[in-house]
Each structure stands twice: as C-alpha cells, then as structure tokens.
Design a protein around this nucleic acid. Structure first.
Lengths: 112, 112
DNA sequence: CTTGACCCTCACATCGATGTCAAGTCTTAG
DNA sequence: CTAAGACTTGACATCGATGTGAGGGTCAAG
C-alpha cells in the first residue's frame, strides 16, 4: 500500500507517517519512483505507535522501545530502567487523571 | 504571603503563578508597591489548578470550571456539557494510558 | 541611608507533533 | 500520450505552559 492508503487505514496524516519514518519508528520500501510502499503489517505498527504517543511517550522513547515489542530477543539492562521510568510516569499521570476525573464527576453530579 | 512564598509552598514557579493570574485562574491583592499578596487559601487553589493542568485541561477550560468548584451556586447548563466533554476526554486518555501501561509492563515482565 | 534579596513588566525562546504551502515528480485511467 | 490525482522534499507556522533575561522598582535589616 502507498502512503495515502496507510493514512486512510490508520487515521494518521501522511505528514505524520513521514515524520514517524524520519524518527525511525516506521520503515518503508521505496519503489522505482521513490514513493513509499508499506506492507499490510504497517497498519498495526502505526496503531501501536499512535497508542504509545497518545500515552505521552516521545518518539525518541518509542524508537528505543519498539524493537523490543517486535523482537523479544532484544533485551538490554538499561532498557528495563527506561521502561520502569516510563511506567512510573504513566502511573503518576493516571493518578492525576483520576483525581481530576473525580473532581469533575463530582461537579457533574450536583447537576442532577 | 508574597509570590516567592507561594511559589515555595506550591512548587509552581513565580513565572507560572503570574501566568495563572494573567489567565484569570488566580487572584492577588497588590500592596502599595504593586507587589502581589496572597491569602493562605491560595496554596490550595494553586494545587487544584496544577492538578487540573496535569490532567490536560487548558487554562481556558480551568477558568470556566474553577468558579464552580469554589462556588456551588454557579451552575450553567452549557457548563455541564463542557464538563462531560472533558470527562470523556479524560476517560479516553486513561484508556490510552492503561493500554500503554500494560504493553510496557508486559515487556518489563519478560526481564525477570 | 544603604544594601541585598525580592519583586515588577515586557519580550523573546523553547519543545514536539502536526499543519500547510510550494514546486516539482510519479502513477494510472482514459 | 495526457491530464488528474497522488506522491516527494523542504521550509515555515502553530499551540500552550514555562524558562530566561533585561532593566528597573520595593522592602526590610543593619
């Protein structure tokens, strides 16, 4: 599939897909004319990338983490630290969200 | 208390406190020399502001929501929509976080 | 009064993912 | 072959909370 197809299939703009490639998150084969071609599996990969991005991971972090999701044999010790660091950040952010959620939900309650 | 005290008490930089005031989230009395003075209650208010910010609310949204937290008598119907909209956003973001959390936690597991 | 610490306003910088525009190239249906 | 539509690279713009620095007041202790 070409970039327009992948864009339609994932909801990511073509601009974003090129950016992901720039950042080393996504590969593509180039045809004779230099246009990008993606295998069907790219759809899932982009979905994963977007999920990680939506959770606040930077492209730099995702670049380090993604290979491990794809290939379990890649296991470096500092990566474990990196991951647990991200986990802590996510947990603290979830706590923030829960606190705010409860505050807002409480407000909405008083409308009934 | 003056801005430096409030900053120390809340962890927010003086720059941020002035910004919150600019955005209408925080009030201050000005002494003769033009310096800001805050009541003790400002500490809690700033904590609340930071909690909402950390959950991804914009200062514009917080400006609309904050008066209701302080004064229950202010209840406009469109505000209920605004709040439920924010609640949905927060819930979807928590879902993103949980997905990513599980992915990363799974990776960390394989290290043991 | 002086001095050092604190405060004031204004303005410009930053970061990161994405939008957008321009000028040129490729592909494919007709 | 041609024209329309999709693609390419490159550059500049955006948003929002915060950092930072300049130039100049204010306050309180000695």
């Amino acid at each position: 599939m070409r970039i327009g197809d992948l864009s339609a299939a994932t909801g990511a703009s073509a601009r974003s897909l090129r950016y992901y490639e720039d950042q080393g998150l996504l590969q593509s084969d180039r045809g004779t004319g230099g246009q990008r071609h993606y295998p069907a599996a790219a759809v899932d990969r982009v979905a994963l990338i977007r999920s990680l991005l939506a959770a606040g991971l930077s492209t730099a972090t995702i670049r380090d983490v993604l290979p491990c999701v794809a290939d379990e044999s890649i296991r470096t010790p500092w990566l474990a630290d990196r991951l647990t660091g991200e986990l802590r950040r996510i947990e603290s952010q979830m706590a923030d969200l829960r606190r705010t959620h409860d505050i807002l939900a409480g407000l909405v309650e008083t409308y009934r």
